[in-house]
Write a protein that binds this DNA or RNA. Structure first.
Length: 474
RNA sequence: GGUGGAGUGGCCGAGAGGCGAGGCAGCGGCCUGCAAAGCCGUAUACGUGGGUUCGAAUCCCAUCUCCACCUCCA
């Protein structure tokens, strides 16, 4: 069975066939870096990170391009208000986004281009659109002529006459009120550094044209997948597609859109004031639990976020972690080759191939972990080893292998040497407790356990002796 | 007004004509000195009203409610 993906443009699942065999080019709309990232931003990033990991596991070489929109009206306005240079303001938030992505295990993209670094490419496309009659200049600004392009509205199935006017310029300046800006003439009061020379005078690019230019620069005239949040479909993606295709390029062959995070049914967003900052969520919870919570729901379904969401994810994460560490202690860690070549359960593969069915894939992982835990209790080491390899390989596809370096290090928040030293100290207490238990001195044994618990160290008794671990953060 | 999406057990969430996904919480049991972890078991679930069908959460009709995009938005 091959991978099938839901194409938002045709609204149906389609068999995925890359333009170039063995390779996949993906353009993902990244953040507009004008304020701190919230949980919703991470959901989109995690969803496409899982796509990348599944494609890679399936043998493809993936070029993921995720842009940074580092200039726009809001960035300029907010920076001015704060007395910052706009570029310093943008970079500050770009760093916050990068840190947030990294925290939840999103792989760094192959390219992370900034809009302001691609002015020549942007100008070239605009010039081409003017030449072929799909764009026109007025007062130093350039607009896309929506009526010149018959397919306008096709991505989102909207008729031109049903749309409300684009508000990015006075209607008088445009041939049609729904025309949108490709190039914005510099306005009085805007910083000199926020404008560039162009055939139409100084100015800066419109939002949509940036993505058309960067996608083409890194992925070519036509590429496999364009992704982004569902809220970008219109006008952003509709306009991107119109520009690029009107300019004569094939552009994206398939569109994927991730749904958003809701709270009490309402979309999480800054403008509604219900945006939950990543920094707030990560304060009491492990990043891996946040990633699990965001990945666990199918990417096209709304994800209802509540205070218990992270508690539940933490519990699941502890279950995965517990099995992996117990099983590893018993049968040893599989080699990276074992993990890379492991045959994944059929149910898992089918679920992932069916438009990334992570919820069903997760169910298979739970089944594997349950079988592994049972084998652990039964002393069936061969079965334990099999379950360990399988579970880790599947979890890795979701970016959630507990033994992967990013999570293993995060868990302890300490280096290997510090952990070894801690183990040496705790071991003495465990031995003392074992002696007390041997002589049925339960009071002493419990006192030792309680004392360790007070220090955040959890003791678990097993048939072959006690083991310790650090308590979960939450 | 236009274009879409959603209503599933206490909660989160899959599924999309016929064996009650999975997780979290709860309850009972096993294990344990007690715990913890783990395992086993445990649910009159599919917004409402009709209809089609041997059989519907899944199809059809009607209806109610909620959400989103058409402003910046992942």
């Amino acid at each position: 069975m091959t991978l099938r993906l839901f194409d938002t443009a045709t609204r149906e699942e389609r068999e995925f066939a890359p333009l170039t065999p063995g390779k996949v080019g993906i353009y993902l709309c990244g953040p507009t870096v004008q304020s701190s990232p919230h949980v919703g931003h991470l959901r989109s990033a995690v969803a496409f990170d899982v796509l990348q990991r599944w494609l890679e596991r399936s043998g493809y070489q993936v070029s993921m391009v995720r842009n940074v929109t580092d200039i726009d009206d809001k960035t300029l306005a907010k920076a001015a208000e704060a007395g910052w240079e706009w570029w310093a303001w943008a970079l500050r938030y770009e760093r916050e986004f990068q840190a947030a992505y990294a925290a939840v295990g999103v792989k760094p993209p192959a390219a992370e281009p900034r809009a302001t670094g691609h002015i020549p490419e942007i100008i070239a496309i605009i010039a081409r659109l003017i030449d072929n009659g799909h764009a026109y200049e007025h007062g130093g600004s350039v607009y896309f002529d929506v009526r010149s392009y018959a397919a306008y509205g096709s991505l989102t199935r909207q008729a031109l006459e049903d749309l409300t006017p684009a508000p990015d310029a006075p209607a008088d300046d445009k041939r049609d009120p729904r025309d949108f800006a490709l190039w914005k003439a510099r306005k009085d009061g805007e910083p000199e550094t926020a404008s560039w020379e162009s055939p139409w005078g100084r100015g800066r690019p419109g939002w949509h044209i940036e993505c058309s230019a960067m996608a083409q620069r890194y992925l070519g005239d036509e590429f496999d997948i364009h992704g982004g949040g569902l809220d970008l479909r219109f006008p952003h993606h509709e306009n991107e597609q119109a520009q690029s295709r009107a300019a004569g390029y094939g552009f994206a062959r398939l569109w994927m859109h991730s749904a958003w995070v809701t709270q009490s049914g309402a979309k999480m967003s800054k403008s509604l004031g219900n945006g939950l900052l990543v920094s707030e969520v990560l304060e009491p919870h492990e990043p891996a639990a946040l990633r699990l919570a965001l990945a666990a729901v199918h990417y096209r379904s709304m994800l209802e976020y509540s205070p218990s969401t992270l508690d539940e994810a933490s519990a699941q994460w502890a279950r995965f972690q517990g099995f992996v560490s117990r099983a590893t202690e018993r049968v040893g860690a599989p080699t990276s080759t074992d993990l890379a070549t492991a045959t994944l359960p059929e149910g898992f593969v089918e679920a992932m191939n069916d438009d990334l069915g992570v919820p069903r894939a997760l169910a298979v992982i739970h089944e594997t972990v349950r079988a592994g835990n049972a084998a652990l209790a039964a002393g069936d080491d061969a079965a334990v080893a099999g379950a360990l390899v399988g579970a880790r390989a599947m979890l890795d596809v979701l970016g959630l292998d507990p033994a992967a370096p990013e999570w293993a290090a995060e868990r302890a928040g300490a280096s290997d040497t510090a952990m070894a030293a801690l183990d040496f100290l705790v071991r003495a207490d465990i031995d003392a407790r074992a002696a007390a238990r041997a002589s049925k001195d339960w009071a002493t044994a419990d006192a030792i356990r309680d004392r360790l618990a007070g220090a955040g160290i959890v003791i678990e008794d097993a048939a072959d002796g006690a083991r310790w671990s650090l308590a979960a953060d939450s």
